[in-house]
Design a protein around this nucleic acid. Sequence first.
DNA 1: GTTAGCACTCTCACCTGTTGAGTGCTAACC
DNA 2: GGTTAGCACTCAACAGGTGAGAGTGCTAAC
Lengths: 345, 345
Amino acid sequence: MDERKRKLLKAIVKDYVDTAEPVGSRTIAKKYDLGVSSATIRNEMSDLEDLGYIEQPHVSAGRIPSQKGYRYFVDYLMEKENISPGEISAINNLFSHKLIEIDEILKESCRLLSHLTNYTALVALPHMEGDTLNYLQLLLVGMNQILVVMVTKNGLVNNRVFDFQSPIGPDVLSQWEQHLRQKFLKMNIAAVNEKLLDEMTKLFAGEYENPAAVIAKKVQAGAMTGGSDNKVFLVGSSNMLKQPEFQDIDKVKYILELLEQDERMRHLMAPVTEEDVNVSIGLELPYAEMKECSLVTATYSVDGKIIGTVGVLGPTRMAYSRTVSMVDYVAKQLSDIFKIRNKDS
Amino acid sequence: MDERKRKLLKAIVKDYVDTAEPVGSRTIAKKYDLGVSSATIRNEMSDLEDLGYIEQPHVSAGRIPSQKGYRYFVDYLMEKENISPGEISAINNLFSHKLIEIDEILKESCRLLSHLTNYTALVALPHMEGDTLNYLQLLLVGMNQILVVMVTKNGLVNNRVFDFQSPIGPDVLSQWEQHLRQKFLKMNIAAVNEKLLDEMTKLFAGEYENPAAVIAKKVQAGAMTGGSDNKVFLVGSSNMLKQPEFQDIDKVKYILELLEQDERMRHLMAPVTEEDVNVSIGLELPYAEMKECSLVTATYSVDGKIIGTVGVLGPTRMAYSRTVSMVDYVAKQLSDIFKIRNKDS
DNA sequence: GTTAGCACTCTCACCTGTTGAGTGCTAACC
DNA sequence: GGTTAGCACTCAACAGGTGAGAGTGCTAAC
């Protein structure tokens, strides 16, 4: 790969990203100043094709970048694109507005990313692996409900309501609270979530003769942050339909179906620790349905500990430079937000 | 509309729903036992077209039901379709599993509805208009955070975290708690959500000299049920792409874009009080983009008070009978769930 | 009122020829 | 030896044309 080939590949990627049409040698010769004629470009293109960086949809069409070509572009050719002042202020504006809850911040980030990039945006909620229980309190709510309030080290609040049939006195309650604190404080929050129900059941069982009768109903109520542990926000999946390469319903159908599967999206957004921003192109993604898609992700973290991921999914023919900048910036802003939130706790 | 015309219209709707192809007179004569020949059916069809119940895509095609035709079918011709035992048990299974939180129940209902009907399912979260505050407590969490725990009459739990900079003593806290209880208990929950921040600000301001400096940051954290007040769950929007009438990207693009707009979905799912199950066909829906869609909704309620809506959105060529049964049954099950949840509170 | 028969209409699928974009190759040029 | 002009060749896309098939409306007979 000499310099001219790199310039040529860069031009091909750029033009194809812009136009979504296969790029011919004459187009390159006219639009990009490589200083050589279309015939030379033809020869070079032939070489690039042999090397696997570009391919031809059919013999009389221009060339399009291959997955390998995009990879090379992203790794070596792409220039950093600055975000326009207007866009920066749009993002900052969102984050300066502190009086909204954490879910809302993330959802808005997602919406914003989708809007700015015109692709599909994903945000994985802070996952609480590694987060520990810092505070636990039992409250008697109404006559027959115990509310368990828990706060984690990272400041996430977590409720559960337990219904039961016989009234419970305050003395018993504080005794239970003591017990639960001893057992669960400083414990990993995932483990707590898992074991709390068991433990409550044991408490009920120890206090009353027939546990099955007493805890006939146990209902968790209220929004439980534990539930959002695994959530992934998704905004702008309809943006996929705007892409010229996805005008075929059958192509896009499988992608949209995939996007609806939370489990898979969680997998997709599982943090990759290597770098700040990660770009996965085509078949590098774990699902074959997405072979014509690329995903740009970045993690956000607190104290160097990764707690969540933001990402943008688009066609492989993606404006990589711009998208990387956006995702990177939003992730950094999120990290800042969380830093501020945790300073006092 | 004599009996024969009604039978004919019914047959046309049924066949078109099944095949998605315009229905010809010969098809009807062969597949449905109306006891007359295709020629007679042709004459009757011509009448039905004059009456506006069916229409012809072009002169040499069969007929398809018009919006008016579907309306007539839904209002007068549709027979109640029983849900199969397998499906009933699938639904009951979901609801018997009580150990999941309220959001999860609704989300799962949505998923189930979409899966059973193969259309797009929507569930509007219980809106808390009319729900009042029943319980309020302040907890000191960490050194610099107050956690406000609220429980509504309907049993929904609601948290907010307020950060501040100087430590607060337990005496002040209980004084504030007193004040907030006096002010907010029994108040409409929407009003509480709106005014709580103001009130907290006032409390801070009364206690310290320079409020601006002290409450430099106020961050609401944790999952706040108030936020879910307006949420709408949506599952299976990719099912739209499976419908033969939506093979055209441009048609479906606008619909999917619409589905992504929470505000509009909320509007779409705003309860209609008239009946148990409501069917909106084509242009009866508030958005012109959905002129080829139909929406079946049902409300779920507690003590006769409507608290939320479930719905299924599909093409106007929808299996109305089956869908109505499904939506109705799920809504009733949800009402039951909420009845159980509220019995003790 | 019902039905068989028939002419008519229109879509759809298929074929065909044309156009234009773009290539690869060759031979000439610097 | 690299570069370029020229040219033959390939193929997708488009437009126009044709035939088959589905379905209708109308008419006349039952």
